Simulated assay, not measured.
Amino acid sequence: MTRGGTITAVDHVNLKVRKGKVLALVGESGSGKSMTCSSMLGLLPPNGKVVKGQVLFKGQDLVNMPPRDLRKIRGKQIGMVLQDAMTALNPLLTIGEQVGEVFRWHHGVTDRKELRRLSIQALEAVKIPAAEERLDSYPFQFSGGMRQRVCIAINIACSPDLIICDEPTTALDVTVQMQILGLLKELQATRYMTIVFITHDLQLASQFCDDVAIMYAGRIVEQGPITEVFAHPVHPYTEGLVRAIPSLDDCDAPLKTIPGTPPIARDWPQGCRFAPRCAEADARCRSTYPNWFEWDAGRRRVACWHAVQRVHGDGADVAGYESMPQTGEYHPHKQKVA
């Protein structure tokens, strides 16, 4: 809700995350990536609300779960690493107090020596040097990369099944970015965690993730294995994003851009939301939002009226295309996070 009325920021998001894999949620700023993941954990702003839909985690619907029960899952079974570690940490509490709070809240540990021991283990797991000494430090005494490691330590302390990483490397330099990504990948492999990795950096996603979901104007427009989607993008928006990646082979070549600007949430287009910027858009694109087109045994899917021709070539049979409407009632792709 806003002063101007109700705004639908995200709708008809049908997202499935494979257990033990890393899913990249990619899109421009304002496309709804963070809003989608915040809704999974009931962390929407005070004026935000999930009006309809399900978020299924181990067979439980997180949306309709009582707040008391959701708090038991949030932090223990599902963690969330935010992009700004300085604001995510409390500047008035020591690192040890903040890491220890997880064990105190979710495991009922009250003994101070045991809390300290567990907190040291958590910091050592994310490779913070001299963990025992740094336990009594405050966030301002850590570098940006070290603060982000502390946030990761807090989130893996309870060995969660799922971690949502909301652009965790945005404010870090390239070297530290790769260190954090390497740490996350190592933890994901050794602990068999599932990760949702929110980013707008396609190159970063390609190095780290197994699958990708491309988000545009509050909806998923394409999803599949990341190597296949980036090698053979089908949706014009995905194609534009891939084409815009700078080439190291021709550093003097002008940067390729996508013409136009994204629509605003209070004024979504009636049809395909990318139609005003798409060179292939026709009357149907502008009047009706496209159904899902799936192929490769459901491993790839895209929301585009021209998908059949783009995948199989002109003159391809479009029979069956109308049977997969993009609505929240399409059960095989309800939002499922693990």
Score class of each variant (00 low, 15 high):
residue 1 M to F: 04
residue 5 G to Y: 06
residue 7 I to Y: 07
residue 9 A to P: 10
residue 14 N to A: 05
residue 25 L to C: 08
residue 27 G to F: 05
residue 28 E to W: 03
residue 59 G to M: 11
residue 65 M to C: 08
residue 69 D to R: 15
residue 69 D to N: 12
residue 71 R to H: 11
residue 76 K to E: 01
residue 80 M to H: 04
residue 89 L to I: 09
residue 90 N to G: 13
residue 96 G to I: 12
residue 98 Q to N: 08
residue 99 V to F: 03
residue 100 G to E: 04
residue 101 E to W: 02
residue 110 T to S: 13
residue 113 K to F: 00
residue 117 R to M: 04
residue 122 A to Y: 03
residue 124 E to V: 05
residue 126 V to Q: 08
residue 127 K to R: 15
residue 130 A to S: 13
residue 133 E to I: 11
residue 134 R to N: 13
residue 134 R to L: 05
residue 135 L to R: 14
residue 139 P to V: 12
residue 139 P to G: 09
residue 146 M to P: 04
residue 146 M to F: 01
residue 151 C to T: 14
residue 158 C to P: 02
residue 161 D to M: 07
residue 166 D to E: 05
residue 169 T to E: 01
residue 171 A to I: 11
residue 181 L to Y: 02
residue 181 L to A: 04
residue 182 G to N: 09
residue 186 E to Y: 09
residue 195 I to D: 03
residue 197 F to D: 05
residue 232 H to P: 00
residue 232 H to T: 15
residue 236 P to R: 09
residue 255 L to P: 05
residue 256 K to T: 15
residue 266 R to C: 03
residue 270 Q to P: 00
residue 272 C to P: 08
residue 280 E to C: 03
residue 281 A to I: 03
residue 284 R to H: 03
residue 290 P to L: 11
residue 300 R to V: 06
residue 300 R to N: 14
residue 301 R to Q: 13
residue 302 V to Q: 01
residue 311 V to R: 15
residue 313 G to W: 10
residue 319 A to K: 14
residue 320 G to W: 03
residue 326 Q to G: 01
residue 331 H to K: 14
residue 332 P to H: 06
residue 333 H to F: 15
residue 334 K to H: 14
residue 335 Q to S: 13
residue 337 V to T: 12
